[in-house]
Amino acid sequence: MNTLATLAFLATAATVSFAALPSDASAQSTMAYPEKCKSEGMMMDKSKDDMSSGGMQVTDYQKASMDGMKDMNMNMMQGMMKKDADVSFVCGMIAHHMGAISMSEVELKYGDNEEAKQMAQRIIEAQKKEIEEMSKWVDKEVK
């Protein structure tokens, strides 16, 4: 596996691992990922360093989404590796929000449903504001 693919895989594994940790106040205990959102046949093809859909053709929007997720995972992993828990959280969230913007931009480019496109636009606007706030915090607090 090349370095980028390895780090993306580790970031995904770390995200899954952290999500699986028990917590009384965790959103995990009150929220569940919708079954209708899960795909069958998707897996990591370790010999190719990329996502494989069980031999199915990957669409342009799926490729664009996966490219955005690779960038997000790399940046999130870098942020989460900071020695200070507060810095780690904020830097990881900046990357997470950038991923949400990337996904929303893919929806605006490829989506057909007007309601979904409106959600995407609202996400972009909200996440950009929060990224600005968090970036200011990083500039002020991180030495």
Score class of each variant (00 low, 15 high):
residue 20 A to K: 11
residue 118 Q to W: 03
residue 3 T to M: 12
residue 117 K to Q: 09
residue 80 M to D: 13
residue 47 S to Y: 05
residue 3 T to H: 07
residue 23 S to Q: 02
residue 50 D to C: 08
residue 80 M to F: 08
residue 27 A to K: 00
residue 111 G to D: 04
residue 138 V to K: 02
residue 27 A to P: 01
residue 22 P to A: 03
residue 20 A to D: 14
residue 106 V to F: 03
residue 126 A to Y: 02
residue 82 K to S: 15
residue 107 E to T: 14
residue 130 E to D: 10
residue 20 A to G: 05
residue 12 T to S: 11
residue 30 T to D: 05
residue 138 V to Y: 01
residue 27 A to H: 00
residue 64 A to L: 07
residue 15 T to K: 05
residue 60 D to N: 15
residue 121 Q to Y: 04
residue 125 E to F: 03
residue 12 T to I: 06
residue 38 K to Y: 06
residue 7 L to K: 05
residue 3 T to W: 09
residue 13 A to L: 08
residue 23 S to L: 03
residue 25 A to S: 12
residue 117 K to M: 07
residue 67 D to H: 05
residue 34 P to T: 01
residue 66 M to H: 05
residue 81 M to P: 07
residue 21 L to E: 13
residue 75 N to A: 15
residue 10 L to R: 12
residue 43 M to S: 09
residue 117 K to E: 07
residue 125 E to G: 01
residue 48 K to S: 15
residue 52 S to V: 08
residue 84 D to I: 02
residue 4 L to A: 11
residue 42 M to R: 00
residue 44 M to P: 02
residue 55 G to M: 02
residue 64 A to W: 03
residue 62 Q to E: 15
residue 80 M to T: 03
residue 5 A to C: 04
residue 2 N to W: 11
residue 51 M to L: 15
residue 51 M to W: 13
residue 113 N to P: 07
residue 81 M to V: 02
residue 133 E to D: 14
residue 49 D to M: 00
residue 74 M to F: 14
residue 44 M to F: 08
residue 75 N to Y: 14
residue 139 D to E: 14
residue 11 A to I: 06
residue 9 F to C: 00
residue 9 F to Q: 08
residue 44 M to I: 15
residue 75 N to L: 14
residue 113 N to D: 15
residue 92 G to V: 05
residue 32 A to C: 09
residue 76 M to Q: 11
residue 63 K to D: 13
residue 46 K to W: 12
residue 132 E to G: 08
residue 125 E to W: 02
residue 68 G to F: 09
residue 34 P to V: 00
residue 87 V to E: 15
residue 22 P to I: 02
residue 16 V to Y: 06
residue 28 Q to P: 00
residue 23 S to P: 02
residue 20 A to V: 03
residue 136 K to R: 13
residue 38 K to A: 08
residue 30 T to V: 11
residue 45 D to Y: 01
residue 85 A to E: 13
